[in-house]
Design a binder for these strands. Structure first.
Lengths: 149, 149
DNA sequence: GCATTGTTTTGAATAATTCAAAAACAACGC
DNA sequence: GCGTTGTTTTTGAATTATTCAAAACAATGC
């Protein structure tokens, strides 16, 4: 029986993830993936801030590069709600959607919509070959509802 | 019986539209609205190009200003698909959705989705007060389907 | 017509993201 | 273990959509 430090175990998982996707395992990529584990809908800047303490010397450009690589490999999902910068998330396997606050930009997950399946089929696709459907709900988050004049 | 030039009639309609929304009627606003009549999902730059010939001296900033005013007044809808600049459209009364080409960024309208109504209700809204739902279908347009390797 | 208030122009700034070249590094075979 | 090769990161700069601010101007109500 081998005893592994929890931290190490997580990093091993992430290494395997990268490896499995045909990507080289680098400290920056592991750090970005780790940062995404504990954050939902993080943007490049948040991730940069999260990575910096443990991996000083990392550049913002590297973070963008890593995120682009992870996205191309299908390991992270990128959403760009109107008015926000690009946000990244690790939940890629399920087909969940997003609630975005019109006032503060906060993003929350919606696990499913009622009658989800039919939503993925438009009635007339104008010759498009459809790959995915993205649903964004706009409104006011809990906090911002109290700020109205 | 009065005979009105068609061009003039359209402009009168647009003037009434602006007036009804409590906005001042200016040449730039009429020109932008007119440009939007014949264009679907136009961005600020396209509109600027469309306005310039008939109204030289108009600045890009003015176009942005007009579009923001029209949007705030609810006269135009603004969509910002990931990877594109903001696009504007006059169809605001209906609740239609969009097809966006992942390759060339082309945007098409989808009149309705099968089972449209249920789509507007998420199962768990996390305390959000929901105002609207936006559906974007991602895929390849007719043209871009032939460019695949 | 004239004053008021809102809009447009002019000119400059902002901020997210990407580009490019050179240095650093990971993966692989030996 | 060690060099080679191709990829990734750093460093430094560019791009581009959009907004900001002050001054000139124009629409509306009287």
């Amino acid at each position: 029986m081998t005893i592994t430090l929890p931290q190490k175990a997580v990093t091993d998982d992430l290494s395997a993830l990268l490896h499995g996707a045909g990507l080289r395992v680098t400290a920056q990529r592991l750090a970005v993936l780790l940062a995404l584990e504990s954050r939902r809908h993080a943007d490049a800047d948040e991730i940069f801030d999260a990575v910096r303490p443990t991996l000083p010397g990392t550049s913002v450009q590297a973070v963008y590069g890593v995120l682009n690589a992870l996205h191309s490999a299908g390991l992270v999902r990128r959403i760009e709600p109107a008015g926000s910068t690009a946000r990244y998330e690790r939940r890629i396997d399920d087909n969940h959607h997003h609630l975005v606050c019109e006032r503060c930009g906060r993003v929350e997950d919606v696990d499913c919509v009622v009658g989800a399946a039919p939503c993925l089929t438009p009635s007339d696709s104008s010759g498009f070959e459809i790959h995915s459907a993205e649903i964004t709900f706009w409104g006011l988050c809990n906090e911002c509802q109290h700020f109205r004049g």
